[in-house]
C-alpha cells in the first residue's frame, strides 16, 4: 500500500522513518521515535533531524511537557478502535500543553471514529482499513455536523444561545482543516 497517510483531504506517502529503539539515528531526515527513546536523547543529538514521537496508549501526554518545541509530529496509537485513551491524550496535547505540530492517529483507525478524532485535535491519519480508505477517497462523510459540547478548537463556533453547542465555521469535508 503506497499512500497510507490521510491528511488535508487526500492520501499521501508516509514521509516519516520509524527508528527502532536499538537502531542508530540517521544523520538527517524525519524520524519517528518511541517516547522512551525521545526522552533519552538530548535535543542537540537530534540536530539535522525532524523528530516525531509515538505516544502509545497508556503513555502520558504530560511526559512531553517542556519538550514539545522539539517535536514536529506526535503519533497517537489506537491499539484497537475501541480503546479511547488517545482522544484524551490528543485533547490534552492541544488544549492543555498547547502543542501546535502535526497530530496523527495510528493503529486501528476506522471511518466512524475519524470525526471524533478531528474534534479532539488530530489532523492526520494512518489508514490501512480498505473500506475506510475507499470512503475517504470518495468523500463519504458520516459525521453529525452539530456538536453538543465545546472542545478547544478555533474552527468551531457556538450555536444558538447554548454555549456548549457548536458547529464548524464552514461545512468541511472529513479530514480537512480550516486554518
Amino acid at each position: 500500500m503506497a499512500d497510507t497517510i490521510y491528511r488535508n483531504g487526500a492520501f499521501e506517502a508516509d514521509s516519516w522513518l520509524k527508528v527502532a529503539d536499538d537502531e542508530a539515528l540517521p544523520a538527517e531526515g524525519q524520524v519517528l521515535l518511541s517516547l522512551e527513546r525521545f526522552l533519552s536523547i538530548a535535543d542537540e543529538n537530534a540536530e539535522g533531524l525532524r523528530v516525531g514521537v509515538v505516544l502509545k496508549a497508556g503513555e502520558r501526554a504530560q511526559a512531553l511537557e517542556g519538550r514539545l518545541e522539539a517535536v514536529a509530529l506526535i503519533a497517537i496509537e489506537f491499539p484497537k478502535f475501541s480503546d479511547g485513551r488517545g482522544y484524551s491524550s490528543a485533547r490534552l496535547l492541544r488544549e492543555k500543553h498547547g502543542y501546535q505540530g502535526e497530530l496523527r492517529a495510528i493503529g486501528d483507525v476506522l471511518l466512524d471514529q475519524i470525526p471524533f478524532m478531528i474534534r479532539c485535535g488530530i489532523d492526520s491519519f494512518e489508514v490501512v482499513n480498505e473500506p475506510t480508505r475507499r470512503a475517504l477517497v470518495e468523500g463519504h462523510s458520516v459525521e453529525v455536523p452539530v456538536y453538543l459540547q465545546p472542545v478547544g478548537r478555533a474552527d468551531e463556533v457556538p450555536l444558538g444561545t447554548r454555549p456548549w453547542a457548536r458547529r464548524h465555521v464552514a461545512a468541511q469535508r472529513v479530514g480537512q482543516q480550516a486554518d
Binding site: 478502535f81 475501541s82 480503546d83 479511547g84 482522544y87 484524551s88 485533547r91 471514529q113 470525526p115 471524533f116 478524532m117 474534534r119 479532539c120 453529525v144 456538536y147 453538543l148 459540547q149 472542545v151 447554548r162 456548549w164 453547542a165
Partner: peptide, 17 residues
C-alpha cells in the same frame, strides 16, 4: 438535560473503558 446534551456523541468519551 444539560448533561444529556453535553454527553451526546462526546468526541473524547465515546470509547470509555
Amino acid at each position: 438535560e444539560i448533561l444529556r446534551q453535553w454527553s451526546s456523541l462526546h468526541p473524547e468519551f465515546s470509547f470509555l473503558p
